[in-house]
Design a protein around this nucleic acid. Sequence first.
DNA 1: ACCCACATTGACGTTTACGTAAACGTCAAC
DNA 2: GTTGACGTTTACGTAAACGTCAATGTGGGT
Lengths: 145, 145
Amino acid sequence: MAVAASAVPSEPRDPQRIYSIAELAREFAITARTIRFYEDEGLIKPRRQGLTRLYSAGDRTRLGWILRGKRLGFSLAEIKELLDLYHVDRTGVQQLRELLRRSRLHIQDLEQKRRDLDAHIEEFRDVEIQVAGELKKRGAETGND
Amino acid sequence: MAVAASAVPSEPRDPQRIYSIAELAREFAITARTIRFYEDEGLIKPRRQGLTRLYSAGDRTRLGWILRGKRLGFSLAEIKELLDLYHVDRTGVQQLRELLRRSRLHIQDLEQKRRDLDAHIEEFRDVEIQVAGELKKRGAETGND
DNA sequence: ACCCACATTGACGTTTACGTAAACGTCAAC
DNA sequence: GTTGACGTTTACGTAAACGTCAATGTGGGT
């Protein structure tokens, strides 16, 4: 969660491509163990060739989605909910209405997060400006090139 | 983390006021245990009258800050770092430069989060629009009044 | 046939963020 | 003078999200 770069080089390129677990682990800067754990939790379901897992482009996208959700502070259970939301039976009107309702709730949640985030960013910008000003007064370099 | 309303009725009102632990717990919709836990972790340091804790308006603000950080997915350790950032010795130029550097890193982090969040929101809006459209086609109510 | 890199499945350990008693003090109200 | 609301500390428990072995399998080069 610290200050790591957003290791998400989303290049959808070839939709036919398949990925090994190690490949995805490298790409997203997580361990293979983590990916298997997500599978145990029902977040991804790669095909199998015997025992080895084969990940499709869709699986890869899905994984990216999961990690983005994590960066936003959602629990795996919540992320699973959100992912399942897309794949429920959409035939019934009741299902659709429920989907709409849940979707709206999540949007509200996200918008609350955005307000929190904007407030946070503003405060830190203030800190930066003030500290930079203080440093300038003292004739020191600010760190800009 | 679910979909709870942002129980943060920040009314700075009287800066002299003191708050009991139960009062703050109610106001922020957390338990007293949680507040004491934050104290154990060094996130707040209320005065004491004998054994009982007395919280100032500043402590209250600080608590609000902590909870906002949590909603954004920061760990308590990270939040402590951020809070400490404000209260380090600002006399030395080295300290100021370090503060500026860290502050900038955190701003970058927050901006990454904002990009994640915007992407998430957009996707969910799409879901909402499509599902609402689908419902309309079928002649059902969308849930709007 | 042998090695090696990479894969798999448990099983257990760890950190974080609290919850949950247990056992007690304090003060106003009845 | 005890009941009840609120406060305290100490201590153990727990769910989530993985990490870390350990034992084993598997496909490809040489």
